[in-house]
Design a protein around this nucleic acid. Structure first.
Lengths: 244, 244
DNA sequence: GAAAATTTGTTCGTATGTATC
DNA sequence: CGATACATACGAACAAATTTT
């Protein structure tokens, strides 16, 4: 079955650009104006080529671009073809990492932005946390405490706590931005926490948790920004404290 | 002249994936490990095809993907070919907009994140602003005041003020995130400010400016978050106050 | 589980438009 | 202005992967 939406489109593609970029724009606009939703079937390469009146390679060029942005998913085989993708926030985390790398945006600047995001996330978490959030948070704390003598495992569990705070904010924009920033900072500078550092980090995390549990928004924000501010200062002094 | 870096690479591309995706990974890794910097020449399609031992179309597929992420720039004609791109933060702003659209992340959640970013940006602006920043800020304020009776122009000038605050923070991560979030919210919900609303917005902006000029970081943060919080509440009440 | 059908992945050849020298 | 180099685009074909029968 051929895609039906294409035939409804007048196909007066924006002049000037290349054919493939016009197809990209066409499908992109469809997503933004709501006529194409995640899961919408676009057709096979041959069908799209026929409907757009271009060669298969031109369609391929367009699909490669759309796929790289995470806007379409492509499956091989019978019943395959191109579909509008489900959202995957890691795609733009990747785009952010690429651009920060090209621009030479450093860890210090990134940590500031992370602090801005996580401070607000902690505040919202204190205001909107439910029982499930609290269980997830305390679960992360217990996991971290149980591996306080295993630097790598502690660092990992510690990251889990930060992500759980973000999730407790119930704000997907904050969650997505935090994950993206973590994606930038984590791989490049992941020092591990020695046991004494781990113990201090654990104490700080429990303080943050207490404020969230108590519903103390400003307190939670304050505790979180102080925590992250301390990490940033350690980094600057080359003490290389772990991100926890 | 053929690209030289390729021949040094063993070219044992990660197994399992498609050829073109292996080329994408190869070049991507080169950027992240520092062996490829913005401006680095990669070669023409023919040269790359020869060096990687694949057909031109396979190289093309890879270049389309890399180009869509904003990682390479492609130029036609003699002396053209593929080069590592200069950073362009609008690429990831676009990726963010796409994923938020697919995920259905709404204006309310986005405004919260924007508030988190701009609050910190205002605080840092108060701490790090220089003479040039202050001139740019007051310039934006004057432009806005001069068009207070032209809703569209006022909204535009007002956006300029917010961006100037972010720039005064001298933190490129915050600047990039703000621009990206603006990019999400702006097109979808851009109501214009009526003259009376504009006058109130102008007054608030001047308050923020005064705190930044005075070097009052917490005060600047507070004024900015209150300003944005007011916008968010207006939105919820369907008063549809403009973003200014 | 095997065979058939469908679709992407990949290659070669060719032609055309466009930017640089 | 002409020659050159390059991306863009088209067509036909086969290989590999995946789903359906």
């Amino acid at each position: 079955m051929a895609a039906t939406f294409i035939s409804k489109l007048p196909l007066r593609l924006t002049a000037g650009a290349t054919l493939s970029s016009q197809i990209v724009t066409e499908i992109r606009n469809g997503v933004f104006d709501g006529s194409l939703a995640p899961g919408s079937f676009l057709g096979s390469e041959n069908e799209l080529a026929k409907n757009f009146g271009v060669s298969r390679i031109t369609v391929r060029d367009a699909l490669r671009s759309l796929s790289a942005m995470g806007l379409v998913e492509i499956r091989q085989g019978a019943g395959g073809g191109a579909r509008i993708a489900q959202s995957n926030l890691d795609y733009f985390a990747d785009a952010l990492a690429v651009q920060f790398q090209l621009a030479g945006v450093g860890v210090d600047e990134t940590l500031r932005a992370q602090s801005a995001i996580e401070g607000t996330a902690a505040e919202l978490a204190a205001e909107h946390r439910n029982q499930e959030d609290l269980e997830r948070l305390s679960g992360a704390l217990e996991r971290a405490r149980s591996v306080v003598h295993d630097p790598a495992a502690f660092t990992e569990a510690s990251l889990g706590f930060h992500l759980a705070v973000a999730e407790a904010s119930h704000n997907r924009a904050l969650i997505a931005l935090l994950r993206a920033l973590r994606f930038v900072v984590w791989p490049s500078e992941n020092k591990r926490a020695t046991p004494d550092v781990a113990a201090r980090v654990d104490k700080t995390h429990r303080e943050i948790f207490a404020r969230i549990e108590a519903g103390d928004g400003p307190g939670a924000r304050d505790a979180m920004t102080k925590h992250l501010g301390g990490i940033r200062v350690s980094k600057q002094k080359q003490h290389d404290e772990a991100f926890c």
